[in-house]
Simulated assay, not measured.
Amino acid sequence: MLSIRQLGVSFTQYDQGLNQRQLTVITDLDLEVQAGEVVAVVGASGSGKSLLAHAVLGILPDNAQVTGSLRFKGQPLTPARCAQLRGQDIALIPQSVGYLDPLMKVGPQVRRVAQLGGLSKAAAQTAVGRTFNRYDLLPSTQGRYPFQISGGMARRVLVATAVVSQADLVIADEPTPGLHPEIATETLTHLRELADEGRGVMVITHDIEAALQIADRVAVFYAGTTVEIAAAADFPERLRHPYTQALWRSLPQNDFIPVPGHQPSPDQLPTGCLFSDRCPWFTPDCAAERPALRSVRGGLVRCIHAD
């Protein structure tokens, strides 16, 4: 359904005076989302997760340049096609509640999305009422503006917006922060149900264990690139990349061992492996060139030492 090959995203910035520079924040990023599956995208802050979602939706700022291949259902995602598909065939559950229109009541906002998906006015009203009830939002919530509801309620409204759409691809950018644990679990379960109905679902999250509850595959990002794509069943024993292994061990419920060092800045990326200065497997060959994404034990990994 969604195919991304060697995606690059850079931004033109002014340095001093009128001098411009190019800041590359995503490079050689690869990912696929099939119909009927949930792909979780995990990684540290600044690894390019949300930028990927914005690139797919065509909502990057004007100073952004995109290279590589982005295809949806086999056809290129051109800017014009992104605008046509956005909110209809491709739906976003954004990370920030600021995406809600502050001048419009939340009920009409969600109903408008349902109608854009092809539902009649009456059917849209029914779908909104049913979805709001599912996420413990009282009927009176529909008549309130975003500033009149709590942050957790606003996030549930965003989830409801994507759920009532008829989108074939749903991108959920950190859909559970601020939700009660039971509602968070139910939200993830519903995303799984959407995939079981034949939709493609991409879940961007910091919570690896939550993602593993519903994901078929997990894509691990580091410094703007894909370092590993593994089946959910591969966690933790069959992981291939040293960063993925270290990320898993850093969780409080696991060994709680922090990954030493820092993710490289986009304007100071090393020539070779992006993880080389923090990697326990480092050899001089790692610094020679950027490793390619290759198949190892049924998964994909960007490491010359993985076997």
Rank of each mutant, 00 (worst) to 15 (best):
H180M: 07
T271S: 10
V106D: 04
V41F: 01
V113N: 08
Q253L: 11
T185L: 06
L57Y: 02
V33P: 00
V110H: 04
A306E: 12
L251T: 01
D136Q: 09
R155I: 08
Q245I: 12
I204D: 01
T27E: 14
A154P: 00
R21T: 00
D255V: 13
K73N: 10
L158F: 12
F282G: 00
L51M: 15
V113Y: 05
Q95H: 11
T185A: 07
P94F: 12
Q84R: 15
I93Y: 07
Q65W: 12
V157R: 12
L191E: 02
Q263H: 02
P270K: 00
V163R: 01
V56Q: 01
S165F: 10
Q95D: 12
V203D: 04
Q245Y: 05
I149A: 07
L158W: 07
P266Y: 00
G87I: 05
K49C: 00
G261E: 07
R130Y: 02
H190M: 14
V39H: 00
V33R: 00
L7C: 04
Q125E: 14
N133S: 08
T185N: 09
P181N: 11
G17Q: 10
R134K: 07
G98S: 15
T225M: 06
A124D: 01
A80C: 07
M1N: 06
M104V: 15
R71Y: 00
V163P: 01
T226D: 01
L92D: 06
A83R: 15
G299E: 04
T12K: 07
E237K: 10
L191W: 02
A83Q: 15
G272H: 08
L158R: 13
R111L: 11
G58V: 13
S96N: 14
G143W: 10
I183F: 10
L137S: 02
S165A: 14
D285M: 04
R112M: 10
G74T: 01
M202F: 05
A195H: 03
A230V: 03
A114R: 06
R294Y: 04
Q20N: 07
H241S: 12
A172Y: 03
M1G: 03
V38P: 00
K49R: 14
R86N: 04
L138M: 10
I171Q: 03
L119K: 14
S295M: 15
T126L: 14
L188M: 09
V301A: 03
A306R: 10
L100N: 08
A114P: 07
I4Q: 00
S250P: 00
N19I: 07
L52F: 02
D168I: 06
Q148S: 14
I208M: 15
S276W: 02
V159L: 14
I59Q: 11
T187G: 02
Q88Y: 04
G299N: 08
L29K: 01
A306F: 11
G200T: 06
P236I: 03
S165I: 13
G68K: 06
A233F: 07
G143D: 12
V97E: 09
A184T: 06
M1E: 06
P177T: 07
A53V: 02
R278E: 08
A35F: 03
G74N: 01
G98V: 14
P258K: 08
R71C: 11
L77R: 05
M104D: 09
S50W: 10
R130H: 09
V41N: 01
A162Y: 03
R238Q: 08
L191R: 04
I214Y: 08
D307T: 14
S120D: 13
I149Y: 06
E237C: 04
L179V: 05
D173N: 09
G87D: 05
G298Y: 07
I208Y: 13
Y222F: 13
V201A: 04
